[in-house]
Every structure is written in C-alpha cells, then in structure tokens.
Amino acid sequence: MDLLRAKVLSNEEIMPSTHVLALASPELGRTAAPGQFVHIRSGPTWDPLLRRPMSIYKIRPDGVSIMVRAIGAGSTMIAASVPGGWLDCLGPLGTPFELGPDSRRLLMVGGGYGVAPLVALAELALPRDCEVVLLVGAASAQYVFPSALLPTDVEYEVATVDGTLGHHGLVTELAARYLEWSDAIYACGPTPMLRAVALAARPLARAGGGAVPSTKRVELAMEQDMGCAMGVCLACVVKTRRGLQRVCRDGPVFRAEELVWESSA
C-alpha cells in the first residue's frame, strides 16, 4: 500500500456512465488482490475534496484496471480521465476476498457495478480448478455487465429489475438456485442485496452444519460512505459481532456471519 501516481493507459466506457480505466502501476499490480480498492483523487484541487474508492476489476503484473461509475462530481472527473494522464492513487486498500483451499464451486453475486471485484476474483479462481457462477443484477439491460468481457468459463446469468434482460426481478432470486450447489459465496453490491444474500445463505449453513456452525464461506464486500480509507476518520463503520468495524480497513470484505444487520436495512 502506498501513495502513488498511476498513468492511465486506456479508458473504455463499457456501459452507460461506467468506465474501465487501465492504470499502469507495477506496485498496484504486484500487491493488489480481488476485493481491494484504490482511493483516488478526482483532481488536483480541493473541490471535490475527498478521494473516491474504486473497485479493482482486473489485476495484471504491470498494473490494475478499475471500474468507475460516473455518479457524482468526483467520479465523473475520474471517469473522464484521458489516456496518458495520471491519477493520484492510494492503495491497494482493504481486505481481499479469500479463496478457501477446499472451495471448488463458487457462487458470485453482483449488484450493478458491484460486479467489478467479482470479475477479478473469477479470474483468480478459474486457474485454480474452480467452477464459477456469476449472477449480476441491474436496473435494466443497458446496465448489465457485457458477457463478452468475462472469461469464457464463467457461467453467467443476469436479472434486471425492469425485465429487459434475463430474469425479471432481483438477482437474489436467481441466487436461490445455486445456494445448495455452491461451497462458497461472494457478493458485492448495494447493502440490501448483500443482506439478502447473507440471510439466504444462513439457513443453508445451519442445515449443513447441524449443531456445529457451518464453515461455508460467505464473503460480502460492504459499501459505506468513506473518508480517509486509512481507518482514521471512522466514517465508514458497520456493525459486526466484534463491535463497529471500519469498511475501509477491517473490510470491505467481511464474512457474512460477522455482520450484524439493522432490522430496517
């Protein structure tokens, strides 16, 4: 982890307002792992003020690619980065997803551009003899992650809220079919989706484990408004069984059984 300037090698809009930026940084490429993020300044001035956390989408020896959705002033500036330009990066930060030594059937559930770290994880898992089912939910067809960008060995299903592509409904409804099959579950997306994944996986874990708590791996990459991303400002906390934990430092990836969900969430 370090403060570094990374050159933008390419910028491709893969979905409306959603860009993949390839960054040149051997340090990021060497140290980053799926689930981690890079905290990026939107420009040289102090407005917008804060860095923006961006998911790592691809990892190469010479750098990483990040996925950026232009939703506010800062992310729009980062998404508009021109190849040849530089980005002020802090990273890689946070805890990565972990592949268990015995996990072979991986269920991945992504909401919107939450698919980004799951693509990186799938690319890590496939050469390790894992089967990967990736389920992605989006508001409508135009926001569905293009299947052409996935490794061919990934089994890919989509759900759209408006029914314009794939399953008409929520991605978590698709997930139910793969819960039994999977021996590990990874999810990234909006908090309600993560909560639904955690709750759906829970009874299964109990049934499988009997009186002994199941060891089935369910890992969730949490979202929370972030300030420093260094564990200092304490903005991005979530409730866990060990008390409040920082998404930036103790996460973003948490084991599902660690998290305590607000009843209204």
């Binding site: 407005d47 804060l50 800062g74 929370q224 408004d225 400002c233 304490l234 991005c236």
Partner: peptide, 30 residues
C-alpha cells in the same frame, strides 16, 4: 483522536458528507 472516560461507539451512519471544498462529519467521538 478525542478520548472520553468510557469507550464510545459514536453516532449511526451516514457519518460524513462532502460539501463544496469541505466535508461534514458527525462521528460522535468513537
């Protein structure tokens, strides 16, 4: 970081928001 007599969990989230050339915070002395 501000220290209190007893440990504090602080305020519920969201705790921060960006503003023009600034930010708002209500961490609550966690």
């Amino acid at each position: 970081k501000g220290v209190t007599v007893r440990p504090r969990d602080g305020n519920p989230t969201p705790r921060i928001a960006e503003t023009p050339s600034g930010m708002l915070n209500a961490i609550g002395l966690q």
